[in-house]
Computed example of a mutant assay.
Amino acid sequence: MDEAAEHFAQRFEEHRGHLRAVSYRMLGSLSEAEDAVQEAWLRAGRADRTGVENLGGWLTTIVARVCLNMLRSRGTRREAALDVQDYEYVRVPDPVLGPVDAADPEQEALLADSVGLALMVVLETLAPAERLAFVLHDMFAVPFDDIAPIVDKTPAAARQLASRARRRVRGRAPSPSTDRARQREVVEAFIAAARGGDFEALLALLDPDVVLRADAGGLPTTKLVRGARKVAEQAHSFRRFAPLNRVVLVNGMPGIVGVSEGRAFSVLSFTLSPNGTITELTILADPARIPTLDVSFLPG
C-alpha cells in the first residue's frame, strides 16, 4: 500500500463509526450496515478523490447511495414474497444489545448512539427515498442540496420527501419515556408476572392501546397484536420461557433477551408512555437473524 492509499485508509477508519450509524438507520440490519460500509470503502478507494474537501460528507453520500440501492432491492424482493391480502408487513430491525449495568466504553458509546427500536420499526414502513431523506436530514443534519442528487430530485422535492416521512413517523412512532430506571422496573415486573403466570399483573403493566409486533421471520409466526388483553394473552402463553429471560439494554433502554445454552433465541424491547405503562412491545425471534446477535457479555 502506497503512502496516499495508507493515508486514505486511516482517514476512512476515522469515519467508519459515523458511516455505520448512517447505514444502520437506513437499513435496520447490523450485518447489512457492515456490508454497506465495506462497499462504500471499495467505491471510495476506486474513485477520484482529487478536490474532495469534506471527506466525511463525501463518504456519507457514497454510503447513502449504497443503502438506497439495498433498500430498493429489498423492497422488490418483499413485494415478490408477499402475495397475501390485507397483510400488514412486520419487520423488526436488528437490535443493538448491551449489558444493563455495564462498563464497556465502546459498547456504551454504541448504545448511546442507537435509536429506539420502535422508531426503527416505523422507518421500515417508509419508501426508500423517504427513509434516506429523513435519516440524512433529520438524524444527521445533511442539507437537502446534498440529499437531492442521491435521490435524483431537486432540493425542494427532497425536502418534501423528508417532510412526508416526518409526518408518518410522528403519526406512528410513540413518544417514549426516557427514564431508564423506571423502564428497568417495568421490565423486571413484566418478567416476574410472566414467570408467575400472573395474568392480571401483566395486564396492569400495559397501556389499553398497547401494540405488540413480533417478527419470527415468516408469515405464520409473524404477528401484529393490538389491545392490552390480547397482548397480555400472548405474553401469558409464553410464560414457560420466562425463566430464560435476562434484562439487557436493547438500543439503549432496558429490555429482555431470551438465552438458552449461551445463545439468544428472542429479543423483546419495550416502549413506555410518560406515565410508565407499556405502549409497545417489539419482539425479534427470527431464527435466521437471532444467532448473529452477540450475548457474550452476559454471565454464564
Rank of each mutant, 00 (worst) to 15 (best):
A235V: 13
V231G: 02
L59E: 06
D286H: 09
M26K: 08
G300V: 01
H7W: 10
V92T: 12
T222E: 12
P128Y: 08
I278L: 07
F297H: 11
L244V: 00
L123E: 15
D104H: 09
M120E: 14
A109S: 12
A157Y: 00
A194G: 14
H236P: 03
V84K: 05
L19D: 04
M70A: 13
K153D: 12
V142R: 11
V211F: 00
L249Q: 13
Y87D: 03
F297M: 05
V151E: 05
I278G: 03
A216F: 08
P174C: 04
N69V: 12
G51D: 00
A44T: 07
G217T: 07
L161H: 07
F190G: 14
D207C: 01
E34G: 05
A81G: 06
G171D: 13
G258N: 07
T282R: 03
I283P: 00
L27Q: 07
P149G: 11
R164P: 00
T282V: 15
T154W: 00
I283G: 03
R77P: 00
A103D: 15
M1S: 14
G262R: 00
P143K: 08
D207Y: 00
S175A: 15
V231N: 03
E261F: 11
V259S: 00
A21Q: 11
P208E: 07
D101V: 01
S73G: 15
A189Q: 15
R43E: 08
F238D: 10
